[in-house]
Every structure is written in structure tokens, then in C-alpha cells.
Computed example of a mutant assay.
Amino acid sequence: MDKIDDSIKDGTNTIYAETTNLDEIVYLDIKKGYFDNIILSQHNIVDWPNVEFYYSSKVSSLESDYLLNVKRWPIIHVRVMEKFVEMDIKGLSYFPIKLVDVVTNNINNNYVLMYIDNFIDAFDMERSKYKYNEKYNLYTFIPQETYLNKKICSQYDIFRCSKSVAAIYASQKIKETVEKNNWTGFDFYKQS
């Protein structure tokens, strides 16, 4: 959020998709109002619905490579998708989204959801500190005291951890590609 505030001050702020139609979507066994959680579990996505995100060109119409959005979905520009396909990055599926300008009603089709198919048992449970709630089969990992299993994780360029699915983990290869191409909107944190 600090980067967003700074970019607004500098006049370099990119599009922020502040609303969406996700809460209205009914999809297979997902109840209305919960479609945004589809990214947090493995799904065999067949018939992708009409997904729309909305922004105001009065605020900004400057495209970024990783679209900031209210639902915190991993939405990337098609040029990023094309590069990842060219690099043969495994474990990703791409689904179109419509980015609608609420001022002009113009539709930008330059973005896709980057759905991560890889949900792996990635944590080094012996070194990591966490709490486990047996009733809900829920793990809560302690920040800065969580470790990945290098042997398992090194087999993937991108993944989510099956015991704590919110974060997206990317390889050094992806990080270096993002940096080499000067793609905007991405942010990386080193993981132990």
C-alpha cells in the first residue's frame, strides 16, 4: 500500500481494479458470493464465467504488468502470460478477465487470471513454527519462522502451499524474468 501511495504522489500510479462482479457469480458447486475463493483451491476449471473487474480512468489508465485489484487475485498482463508460456512455466492456467473502465465503459482485454495449479506440501514442518487446529484441519504459520522444504520446492517454478494457500511462491527464475523485463506491479520477498 505504501508503494501505491507513493506512486499517486509521483503521478505514476497504475490501474487499480477497485470493484468486480465476482460476488455475483454462481459457478458449479461454489455458492454465490464465494467465487473469489476459486484461486485458493484446486479446481478443474472448464467453463470459465464472465469475470469483470472495474476501474476508473479518471484515477489512472496506466497499465501495469501485475494488476492490483480489490480481490488480490494474481492477474497479469497478456505479455507476461506469453513470456511464461514461452519459458514453459509449468503449473499455470490462464483465464480471461474483462477490465472495464467505469467512466467510458471501454473494455480492456489485456489481462488474465494466472491460476496456480500447483498446490504442494512445501513447508519444512520440523523447522517451521506453527499452530494446528485439529477441528478445522487449519495450520497457522508464524511469520519469519516458517521454512520451505528446498528439495520439494526446487521442483516447481510457482506454487501455493497446501497447508497455507494464501501466498504464492515463485522461483528465482521467475523473479529474474520479472526483473529483466522491468515488469511493474510485482513484489517479491525472500523465503527461508
Results as ranks from 00 to 15, higher is better:
Ile30Lys: 01
Asn37Gln: 14
Gln191Gly: 01
Phe159His: 05
Phe35Lys: 14
Gln144Asp: 08
Ser128Gly: 12
Asn133Cys: 10
Leu148Asn: 11
Lys151Glu: 07
Lys129Asn: 06
Tyr34Met: 09
Asp101Ile: 09
Asp23Tyr: 15
Asn50Met: 13
Tyr156Ala: 04
Asp2Lys: 15
Arg127Ser: 10
Lys3Leu: 05
Lys98Glu: 01
Asn109Ile: 03
Glu63Gly: 01
Lys135Ser: 13
Val102Cys: 04
Cys161Leu: 04
Phe119Val: 00
Gln42Thr: 12
Glu24Ala: 12
Asn106Thr: 06
Phe188Glu: 04
Lys31Cys: 04
Tyr156Trp: 08
Ser171Arg: 03
Cys161Ile: 09
Lys71Ser: 01
Thr20Asn: 08
Phe159Gly: 02
Tyr169Phe: 08
Trp73Ile: 03
Asn69Glu: 14
Ile142Tyr: 06
Phe188Trp: 08
Tyr147Cys: 01
Phe123Leu: 06
Tyr16Gln: 05
Ser60Lys: 02
Asn149Gln: 09
Trp73Arg: 02
Asn21Lys: 05
Glu63Asn: 02
Ile75Thr: 03
Ala166Ser: 08
Met125Asp: 10
Val112Leu: 02
Ser64Pro: 02
Ser162Glu: 13
Thr20Val: 01
Val100Ala: 12
Val78Gly: 03
Glu126Ser: 13
Tyr115Pro: 00
Lys71His: 08
Cys161Val: 06
Tyr34Phe: 11
Val78Gln: 07
Val103Cys: 11
Phe159Cys: 05
Lys58Asp: 15
Arg72Ala: 14
Met87Lys: 15
Thr104Met: 04
Gln191Pro: 00
Asp10Trp: 06
Leu113Ala: 02
Val26Leu: 12
Val78Cys: 04
Asp101Leu: 05
Pro143Tyr: 07
Ile152Lys: 09
Ser7Asn: 14
Ile116His: 00
Tyr130Trp: 10
Leu67Val: 10
Gln155Gly: 03
Met87Cys: 11
Asp187Ser: 04
Asn137Tyr: 09
Gln191His: 03
Ile45Cys: 12
Phe186Leu: 10
Met1Pro: 08
Tyr132Arg: 11
Val178Arg: 00
Leu92Thr: 05
Thr19Leu: 02
Tyr55Asp: 10
Tyr16Ala: 05
Asp5Leu: 15
Ile39Leu: 07
Ile45Val: 09
Tyr115Lys: 00
Ile152Met: 08
Ala122Asp: 05
Thr12Met: 10
Thr20Gln: 08
Asn110Gln: 04
Val102Leu: 09
Arg160Gln: 05
Val100Leu: 04
Thr12Pro: 10
Ser162Met: 07
Ser60Gln: 04
Val78Glu: 03
Asp47Leu: 10
Asn69Gln: 12
Glu179Lys: 14
Leu92Glu: 07
Ile76Met: 12
Tyr27Arg: 13
Asn44Glu: 10
Phe141Asn: 09
Thr12Glu: 14
Ile107Val: 15
Leu28Tyr: 15
Asp2Val: 11
Leu138Thr: 14
Ser56Asp: 11
Val100Ser: 12
Tyr115His: 00
Pro74Asn: 13
Lys190Met: 13
Ile174Phe: 01
Lys98Thr: 02
Phe141Ser: 07
Val165Pro: 02
Phe95Lys: 02
Lys90Cys: 10
Ala17Gln: 03
Lys163His: 13
Asp65Ser: 03
Leu67Tyr: 06
Ser192Glu: 06
Asn137Asp: 14
Glu52Val: 03
Glu24Phe: 11
Ile174Ser: 03
Cys161Arg: 07
Asp5Cys: 12
Ser7Tyr: 08
Phe159Tyr: 11
Leu113Phe: 12
Glu63Phe: 00
Asp6Asn: 09
Ile4Met: 12
Met87Leu: 15
Tyr94Val: 00
